[in-house]
Design a protein around this nucleic acid. Structure first.
Lengths: 204, 204
DNA sequence: ATGGCTATGTATAAATA
DNA sequence: TTATTTATACATAGCCA
């Protein structure tokens, strides 16, 4: 890849080492970019020069996203080795009442020495918290949906009530209109059955 | 660098994309290693495949050292450059839109060989699904709360409407009562509420 | 430190097994 | 799939400004 084949070992000559650093660094970044584009993957490259200067490439906006993801993954891997030990104990925490869950969680948090728990203890703890989390989520969703149901019921009642009131007003207006018509015709009203009418009105 | 010049854009054919990924990934790692040795510098490369599998190279023992160094560096630079700008963007950077989440999940499910994944692969997969799950939950809660808000608004409106109608009826009744009192005093009925009656009369 | 310039070594695309 | 082959494109060592 040059006039001469170079052995892969530290270049002792300062200036040619720096020259090579500059060239190969750019090459590496270019390759990283091509890889990320061609294969549609996330790539990050971090280079610290011997004098501590930072050079970076990231296929995403910021490198922090990728490094965070990296750290999450590393943590997750640690978790795997812990979980391999423990498959039986994880089952018994499965179902508790809400109270039991809260009690347990409280108990756990009381413990001052959370830092020196064994892996098995931590797996157990994790399961309990996960149970608590599931229960909490379940209850949250339940309450939200209940709330919505109640509101729908209320809405229905209010709409019905509204309709009744509307009808009432409608019939009153209609009567008024009729009377107006009668008045205009100068027809003498018969009082005879109006008592009944009034009574029903009072009912509403 | 091959039989044909390739344009640097996403390779659409799945199998050749994977082939290229494998080759170029190895090439990139090799180059990174050479750079770190030749120039005596610290280099780190992080690659996440589309399936979320992690590939890494680090010139030091562990990548965490370099990423930590990177984060210290970035933090220092951020302090110098901009204090206000970054807080909002960084929040959104870690969250995906619903579409992105669905896309990612779909991508995952496309893969045919889910059965022979290693434990590490499965952990990565788990992380991605967990992200998707979190987003889904977030969206669910958001929609439920929105729904409740809307229903509360509706309820308020209906109650107000109801009140208006009630008042209207109230005032009508009051008017009627007054008229009745007048009628009783005059011992002569007012025709006003006998519209219904009269209508039937007209019919006859 | 980069930025050409070549000659040459390497990486890799496509084909093949 | 993954490995090997082969023809090319690319990267870069050494050199000069």
């Amino acid at each position: 890849m040059g006039r001469k084949k170079v052995e892969i070992k530290r270049i002792e000559d300062r200036s040619s080492r720096h020259a090579t650093f500059s060239k190969r660094r750019n090459g590496l970044m270019k390759k990283a970019k091509q890889l990320s584009i061609l294969c549609d993957v996330d790539v990050a490259v971090i280079v610290f020069s011997s004098r501590g200067r930072l050079f970076e490439f990231s296929s995403t906006n910021s490198l922090t996203g990728i490094t965070q993801r990296y750290h999450r993954n590393v943590k997750a891997e640690d978790k795997v080795s812990a979980e391999v030990n423990d498959t039986e104990e994880s089952k018994y925490a499965s179902f508790m009442t809400m109270e039991e869950v809260l009690q347990t969680v409280e108990k756990q948090l009381e413990e001052p020495d959370v830092d020196d728990l064994s892996i098995t203890d931590l797996v157990h703890l994790e399961n309990q918290f996960e149970t608590a989390l599931t229960q909490t989520r379940f209850r949250k969703t339940h309450l939200l949906i209940e709330s919505i149901k109640n509101l729908h019921d209320k809405e229905k009642l209010l709409i019905e009530e509204n309709k009744v009131l509307d009808d009432e007003i409608g019939s009153i207006k209609k009567k008024e209109a009729n009377e107006m018509a009668v008045d205009l015709n100068n027809i003498a009203p018969t009082p005879m059955d109006c008592g009944q009418q009034r009574e029903t009105l009072y009912f509403l």
